[in-house]
Simulated scan of single mutants.
Amino acid sequence: MVLLHSGVCDRRMWDPQWTALTAAGYRVIRPDLRGFGLSPVADGPYSDAGDVAELLRALGVERAAVAASSYGGRVALELAASRPELVAALALLCPAVPGHVPGPELRSFAEREDALLAAGDLDGAVELNVETFLGPEAGAEARDQVRVMQRRAFEVQLAAAEQFPQNRPEADLARIAAPCLAVSGAHDVPDFREIAAGLPERLPRARHVELAWAGHLPSLERPAEVTELLLDFLRVTVPPAQANLSH
């Protein structure tokens, strides 16, 4: 079982799910992508999906289920499209998708974030992400968690002398045969709601569920409910007895 974090978080966003998935019999990998958490930025051209594939190879994992949030969803789709033999199932929470052209609200967010960072207002940029990506039911703990993780990502990435481009793999989603659960939040940015809702038209074994209470980070907003949603999906698609060796 591989857990891929969103672009405003790091591996710590999966703390509740990590414990529950392990208790259910899964062995779990939850990496920090480059420039997040404990992972430094890349020192040359790279691919997040390629990094995940190499991690699986290094651990001797031939096939695994992948649960992913937001940007991690894009990485999961790139991995499943470029290396379909590696991915047994996909659970995508408010995912991004390769080739998406941002809509007005997402463009406006990116412009405001860029302006705050250019002005050196790290606090303002962190709060913008908290307010944009957490739904109305998110409590103080979830908001503090996002503040800590997003600030860490900004600090690591802004301190880098150089940002190297990604060599993104070709992502023909038609190659993805794995079963897919695509989850959206009713209070999320429209882009991500539309992406999740549209995946059943692009993936032959995908189904969509919208959470009426959720923003962009449902696994932090209602951890127990999302954990059960993931476990229900995994018990059918990849029962624990089939789980691969992982760390």
Rank of each mutant, 00 (worst) to 15 (best):
G215S: 10
F233L: 08
H100D: 12
R193I: 14
G50F: 06
A64T: 15
N167R: 13
R202P: 06
A20Y: 03
A138C: 10
P223R: 12
P165W: 04
R107P: 06
L92C: 09
L59H: 15
E62L: 06
L21G: 07
R143L: 13
Q17G: 04
D121F: 03
A153Q: 01
V8F: 05
A161M: 07
V101K: 14
A182F: 05
L116S: 11
V156Y: 02
A171I: 00
V183M: 02
A68W: 05
H216M: 08
P136M: 12
L220K: 03
R235C: 06
E127P: 07
V66Q: 07
D51T: 09
A196N: 04
C94G: 10
T22G: 08
G44H: 09
V156A: 00
V75H: 01
A171T: 02
T132N: 01
A160I: 01
T22P: 00
V130T: 08
L3Q: 08
F233A: 13
W18K: 15
A24C: 02
P204E: 04
A88C: 02
A186W: 02
D121Q: 11
S219T: 07
D32H: 02
V75M: 02
S219K: 04
H187A: 12
V8S: 15
A196S: 05
A125V: 03
M1I: 15
L90Y: 04
P179R: 08
M1V: 15
L55A: 14
D172K: 03
A88H: 05
D172R: 06
G198H: 01
P102I: 10
R12N: 11
T19L: 12
G185I: 00
A212V: 08
E155N: 03
A81I: 01
L229Q: 11
R27W: 02
L231T: 05
A159I: 05
Y46Q: 02
A197Y: 00
Q242V: 12
A178K: 13
L128H: 07
A119F: 10
D144F: 10
A171M: 03
Y71K: 15
G35W: 02
G139A: 07
R83F: 02
E127S: 08
V146P: 10
R83P: 00
S82T: 03
G99N: 01
V189C: 06
L21N: 07
R193C: 11
L234K: 09
L230P: 03
L203M: 08
A65I: 13
S47H: 07
L33T: 09
P223D: 06
V156E: 01
V126A: 01
S246P: 09
A224I: 06
H5N: 11
P190V: 00
D114G: 12
D114P: 09
T227M: 10
D232V: 12
R152G: 14
R112Y: 12
V2Y: 01
R151E: 00
Q242L: 14
P165L: 07
L92Q: 05
Q17P: 00
L3W: 09
A76W: 05
V2R: 11
